[in-house]
């Protein structure tokens, strides 16, 4: 049988162990494109789309007022699942990013774990996960390990998965603060990102975290811009920052980009666009002052 339909994580890991070089099939929306084009040949496949443990999300541990709760997202959670209101209220930027992935049909199949495994520079959820300091949970018959996102995504379509390993979950903090995801494409729907930007605000932690997509081999954090804003913003009232500060933030974000010219756009446009997205994202997030609670 060239296809194993795994019914549990242990089952999947055992199959991956038994069939070195086997491909993991989740939503299939990236893998099957390569198979259909004949650039990827299938020898053995472990299908993980029917493992209940992989799908769905949960809040882990006790409420932590400083760092926020930990949200554990099963790797098999689909983009459509991510856009559901209950989950969207916890990680709105991730929901927004998920809603821009491909088409409705793709979102019904494509998974968060698949987006990570493909590790495309244009992977829509990756900048959000980078901004959220996500941690990737990997399992094999040898056990479980966790990697921070920036150690997991190692290059253009390259990741730190070892042979026999399966992405089982992604952990992020549920933050108290606004979140934004903006994506530029040359069509109004169903388009690969020319560039994208995720911005999350951690009010108790007094940080703004910004990550960029499609401007480097891996999702990039704009750390200088983050440092600047951590010092200068009003995290209590979310007061609209002064234009001069917004300009500086936009410049620092654009400076962080390391884009290339390709058939989807030019490096110059991408650099310009992330600067514009940064400006818009920060002004959307800091549109206060926030009214006093009644």
């Amino acid at each position: 049988m060239p296809v194993t339909i795994a019914i549990s994580i242990d089952d999947a890991c055992a199959s991956l162990d038994a069939h070195p070089g086997a491909l993991v099939l989740a939503g299939g929306t990236d893998l099957m494109v390569e198979v259909n084009r004949g650039v990827r040949r299938i020898d053995h496949v472990v299908a993980v789309d029917r493992i209940p443990e992989l799908r769905g999300w949960s809040i882990e541990g006790d409420h932590d007022p400083v760092h926020g709760q930990v949200l554990r997202l099963g790797a098999g959670t689909t983009c459509a699942d991510l856009a559901e209101p209950a989950l969207a209220s916890l990680v709105p930027a991730l929901a927004q990013a998920a809603r821009t992935v491909g088409s409705p049909q793709i979102r019904n199949a494509a998974t968060l774990g698949g987006n990570l495994a493909t590790a495309s520079p244009a992977g829509d959820t990756l900048p959000v996960l980078a901004a959220l300091d996500a941690e990737v949970e990997l399992r094999s018959t040898d056990g479980t390990r966790r990697l921070p996102l920036d150690e997991f995504v190692t290059g253009v379509k390259a990741n730190a998965l070892n042979p026999g390993e399966l992405i089982t979950a992604i952990r992020v903090r549920v933050l108290d603060g606004p979140q934004e995801f903006l994506k530029v494409g040359t069509r109004n729907a169903m388009v690969i990102a020319v560039t994208s930007l995720a911005l999350v605000v951690d009010r108790p932690g007094r940080t703004v975290r910004v990550a960029l997509g499609s401007v480097a081999p891996v999702p990039l954090r704009a750390t200088e811009a983050e440092v600047l804003m951590a010092e200068r913003l009003d995290f209590e009232g979310l007061t609209t920052p002064e234009p001069e500060l917004v300009n500086r933030f936009s410049e620092l974000v654009a400076d962080a980009a390391r884009p290339i010219d390709d058939h989807r756009s030019s490096a110059a446009y991408r650099t310009h666009a992330v600067g514009v997205l940064a400006r818009r994202a920060i002004l959307r997030a800091f549109s206060g002052p926030v009214p006093e609670p009644a």
Binding site: V3, G28, A109
Partner: peptide, 19 residues
């Protein structure tokens, strides 16, 4: 429709749709 969800059947590995 695959178990009620609309999907692109070109991106479904046929054998993995068994059941």
């Amino acid at each position: 429709r695959l178990d009620d969800e609309t999907v692109c059947s070109c991106l479904v590995l046929a054998e993995a749709a068994a059941g």
